[in-house]
Computed example of a mutant assay.
Amino acid sequence: MFTVPIVDISGYVDPDGTARDRAHVARRLDTACREVGFVQIVGHGIERETIDGLAAALDEFFALPLEVKKRYTRPGENRGYSPPKSESLSMSLGVAAANQMNDFYEAFTVGSEQAWFDGFDLPVTSYPANTWPAAAPGLRPAVEAWFDAARSVSRVLLTACTDALGLDPGHFDAMVDHSIDALKMNNYTLPEGDIELAGELTGMGAHTDFGILTVLWADQVPGLQVLDHSGTWHDVQPADGALLVNLGDAMARWTNDRWRSTVHRVDPPVVDGRIIRRRSAAFFFDGNHDAVIETLPGCAIADRPDYPPITVAEHINAKLAGMKSGVAPDGADREAKRVMAAR
């Protein structure tokens, strides 16, 4: 039976965590990453008020009229507001949806800014400034608090992953000291009369995440589905107090698919012609724009060719072009074949 394991990471979060505690966490993470690619984490240390603040901030912004939200659209950039049907995540794998740009979710995205990193000459294309909507004054403080908390958890998880892979401590440090981190906040719902629900409805198309790993907060509402190694879709909901974590393409490429990036999609349930509302916030821990993604020591396999080296920025930009413009990226063949064979 398919299950997403729950792993208590407090051994890495707690300053008093012992080497034995951390070794136990690392072993459980390795098993989860090899067998499932998704894991639920507890013991992450994020305060309840920070989580509640994020949920309230999403409600404040997404409750605004569509014409107001559209003022904060940033065409061509991974920042600001994305209205329904403006993206097609399956195209980030080169897998065309039945209707292009048919993902029925709206989103608001913030992320790492060029100004955050003194002493680095960083391209504004990878580190653009954020947009903070004046029409939702509670959004910025709540989102910044969550962003900081999720960023801390992602770095704890990278330390645990380093141990799980048997790498030297700090192996990834020089690859994440000016990481392109992004938080995409999603709202799955359709206002009455907005559109007739006919035929196949895609909340968020099948895709893999682009970077190292993703830390996801989501409502306990059906919709998220994960593709297992045999090509079958499974419903996944977070346990009480748990955050969902999945691997992205950078980690899959680094490990040469010892740990595969997880193909997933969202299809919120429709009852009486209406989508049941579902909210989520995905923190993408992506790595430095100039970090090179190439096979890690110990992950080369004779009968499976390594992925060709690519920088984090090159990889992300190709995926974003697919998602936002429908331009199929090169080099996504392995993931695309898994999606096309799914049942």
Rank of each mutant, 00 (worst) to 15 (best):
L157I: 03
S261L: 05
A150Y: 06
T162D: 12
G80R: 11
L244W: 00
T255Q: 07
E335A: 14
P169H: 04
G248Y: 08
N130W: 03
D235Q: 14
F62Q: 02
E113Y: 07
M1I: 00
R274I: 03
A250F: 02
H171I: 01
A182V: 14
T159M: 03
L244I: 15
P123W: 03
E144N: 09
S88R: 06
A32L: 06
G193E: 10
T125G: 08
S230E: 15
V153C: 02
W259N: 03
P191Y: 10
H207V: 09
R71F: 04
M340H: 03
K85H: 13
V68S: 04
G119P: 07
A63H: 11
V156I: 15
G273F: 06
G119N: 06
S10N: 12
P297R: 08
L224K: 14
D303M: 09
G241E: 13
H178P: 11
E77V: 12
F2E: 05
R140F: 03
A252Q: 15
R48K: 04
D181S: 09
E87M: 03
A206V: 08
V266S: 06
E77W: 10
A55Q: 13
G193Y: 06
G193T: 10
S88K: 04
A336N: 01
E77D: 06
A136V: 04
Q100G: 13
E144M: 12
P191I: 10
A96E: 08
Q225F: 11
V266H: 02
H24C: 11
V226N: 05
L247S: 08
T50F: 00
M251N: 10
A242K: 04
P329Q: 09
S86K: 01
G211H: 11
Y81P: 11
R27Q: 14
G45V: 00
G11D: 10
F147K: 00
G193F: 04
K69A: 13
L66N: 09
F172Q: 02
D163T: 11
I51H: 00
G45L: 09
S86M: 06
D21Y: 08
D272K: 08
E144S: 02
V215C: 09
P128A: 00
D16C: 11
F283Q: 01
V245N: 05
A160D: 02
R28A: 10
L296D: 08
G76T: 01
K337N: 11
P128D: 06
F2R: 10
D257P: 01
D249W: 05
G193D: 05
I275M: 14
L139I: 13
H315C: 09
A57T: 03
F210V: 15
S88L: 00
M101Q: 14
A302W: 01
V39I: 14
N317V: 04
V266R: 05
S112H: 02
G331V: 08
R258E: 13
A252Y: 01
K184V: 11
I301Q: 15
A55I: 15
V42R: 04
H264L: 08
G322I: 02
P297L: 14
G322E: 02
T3Q: 13
G211E: 09
A332K: 15
A160M: 00
P141S: 09
D30T: 03
L157W: 13
W259Y: 15
V95D: 12
R253V: 00
A135G: 07
D267L: 04
A149S: 09
H264A: 05
E192G: 02
A291Q: 08
V245R: 10
S92D: 05
V68Q: 11
